[in-house]
């Protein structure tokens, strides 16, 4: 009993320390390097900072918690529905794409579209694979839908983006380096937008299949969008110092 009490006291001290750190962080704009694992608080989190992350790893779940583990005494966050432990059904890129495509919280529908999209991609490539006769031809065909999907998005990623900067009453479109997060976001957004422009009667998954296969082969509307942006950046290179 005594040991557990002392550990609780210890824990509460640590929490206090953590809160102080949190306030420090929120007051000062300098990035804080040292962050303990229980102190990753997102500014919009619904949970109070005393909540700890749940265990999602399968092997770790089977083990017993150590005697002085904080998770024995502190409340835990509920595991995220999207975050599956299985490499079969979870991929961060796919999840990001799903969330961008989603409208009005209808995630079930978007997941269905993604499932059918992968099915279409597989049907397309594996039919070719089965019809190919020589080994060389077969090895040239990429059958993994995830690889196809990721390569298509990588191909659409822009290197430069333009930023609107007002100097002396005139707005300039200044070329800036795109951050990795921004790159993926723009690539995904362009692919989705180019699909939404097309005819409405065609199901989304079919449009996406065509668009992704185009992007995989360095063609298509999203690809052209990227080249356009690059061209604007190239023509506005004189403003680069305004950044």
């Amino acid at each position: 009993m005594a040991t557990s009490l002392s550990s609780v006291q210890k824990a509460s001290k640590i929490i206090l320390f953590a809160r102080q750190l949190f306030y420090l962080k929120s007051c000062s704009h300098t990035a804080f390097k040292l962050q303990p694992c229980f102190f990753q608080v997102s500014p919009m989190s619904q949970y109070s900072p005393i909540f700890l992350d749940p265990i999602i790893d399968k092997d770790e779940l089977k083990k017993e918690l150590p005697e002085n583990d904080l998770r024995r005494h502190r409340p835990l966050k509920a595991p995220n529905t999207d975050c599956s432990i299985s490499p079969l059904f979870y991929d961060p890129t796919v999840q990001k794409f799903t969330n961008i495509m989603m409208k009005s919280g209808n995630k079930e529908r978007v997941r269905l579209i993604m499932r059918k999209l992968f099915e279409n991609l597989k049907h397309m490539q594996i039919a070719r694979w089965n019809q190919a006769t020589t080994l060389e031809e077969k090895s040239a065909i990429e059958c993994d839908p995830l690889v196809l999907f990721k390569t298509a998005i990588d191909n659409c990623k822009p290197l430069l983006l333009t930023q609107r900067i007002v100097k002396g009453g005139i707005a300039y479109r200044v070329p800036v380096c795109a951050r990795p997060k921004e790159q993926t976001f723009r690539a995904m957004k362009w692919i989705l937008e180019s699909c939404r422009d097309k005819e409405r009667r065609i199901p989304m998954e079919d449009k996406l299949t065509l668009e992704l296969m185009d992007a995989y082969n360095h063609q298509g509307k999203a690809m052209r969008k990227k080249q356009e942006v690059h061209k604007i950046c190239e023509s506005n290179r004189a403003y680069a110092h305004l950044r």
Binding site: S86, P87, L88, K122, I126, N130, C143, D144, L146
Partner: peptide
């Protein structure tokens, strides 16, 4: 038939 592509 190469239908399951996921390595896992």
């Amino acid at each position: 038939h190469n239908w399951i592509q996921n390595a896992h």
